[in-house]
Simulated scan of single mutants.
Amino acid sequence: MKKIVFLLTLAFSTVMFAQETEKKVGPPAGNALVGEVYGSQPSVTAEKNAIPAKKLQKKLKSSKKLENVAVKGKVIEVCDKKGCWLTVETDNNEKFFVKMKDYAFFVPTALKGKTVILEGNAETKVISVDEQKHYAEDAKKSQAEIDAITKPQEEIRFMASGIKVIN
């Protein structure tokens, strides 16, 4: 009987701890200062040879996927829930979506407005309506904006292995 009570107490405690931990999930704290790195440190070559975000678009027109590419751009949006994705603006005011490789790291919301170097893989993909709506909800878009998403959309997706703040 003592074993059963002990096991039930242990199970209950584990569930309560898991729920409490889940409530505290959010983007990591931090000020995203110049020189800070999230994920893997971008290579020296990546930092020297990072292409402007606008050139990424041009390169992806000739090749649907680029591996081990470094891109420099301005962060305009960060996921408020976990810091698990961000949006980068190109020089011509277009945007592309960045996710973290293997969901292995997150970024603080303070990264918004900063210029970064991203290292990873880029590709052009067709994004489903459901996925677009999911990220619109994460970004706290209005219900009208979410409801306006009615068809798949082709866009640039970047899978970052490392991000470094440079400005």
Rank of each mutant, 00 (worst) to 15 (best):
T87C: 05
A122L: 01
V5G: 11
K99G: 03
K58G: 08
T87W: 03
P28V: 08
M16L: 15
P152D: 00
L66K: 09
N31G: 11
D130R: 12
K81Q: 09
L86G: 12
Q19I: 12
N49D: 06
I76R: 13
P28N: 00
D138Q: 05
E94G: 07
Q132A: 06
E131G: 03
E94M: 10
K61H: 07
E155L: 12
K65S: 06
E123M: 10
E36Q: 13
H134S: 02
N31D: 14
Q153F: 09
E137D: 08
A104R: 13
G113A: 05
G26E: 05
K101M: 07
G73D: 06
W85K: 03
T90D: 05
D138A: 10
D130V: 09
Q57C: 07
V37N: 07
A53W: 03
Y103C: 09
E77M: 10
K125Y: 07
T87A: 09
K133C: 01
I163F: 05
F105E: 11
E67A: 12
H134Q: 06
G35A: 04
I51S: 11
L60M: 04
A53F: 02
T21D: 10
D130K: 14
K164M: 04
M1C: 13
V15S: 12
K72P: 04
V69R: 03
Q19T: 12
K58A: 15
K61W: 09
A136Y: 04
E119W: 03
R157W: 10
K72D: 07
L60N: 00
K141C: 09
G39D: 07
E47K: 14
E123N: 11
E154R: 13
A144I: 11
Q132K: 13
A144N: 08
Q41S: 06
V126Y: 08
G73T: 03
V44W: 07
K24Q: 13
E94A: 13
E131W: 10
Q132N: 12
L118G: 04
L10H: 10
V116Y: 07
Y38M: 05
V71S: 03
E155G: 14
A29Q: 08
F12M: 14
Q57G: 10
K101D: 14
L60A: 10
K59W: 12
A29P: 12
M100K: 02
K48R: 13
C79N: 00
L111H: 00
P52N: 15
C79T: 00
K61Q: 15
I156E: 00
S40N: 03
K140E: 14
K23R: 15
A110P: 05
T14P: 08
E20V: 13
D102P: 09
C84S: 02
E20A: 15
T9I: 00
E20W: 15
T14N: 04
V98L: 00
V116N: 05
F105R: 03
F96Q: 02
Y38S: 05
A32E: 05
A11V: 15
A122H: 02
K99R: 14
N92E: 14
F6K: 14
F106L: 13
N167E: 11
K64D: 08
V69N: 01
I51P: 13
A122N: 00
A50M: 00
V37R: 00
V15Q: 02
D91T: 09
G162R: 01
A104K: 15
F97L: 08
A29G: 10
V71D: 01
P108E: 01
L56S: 02
K74M: 06
V129Q: 11
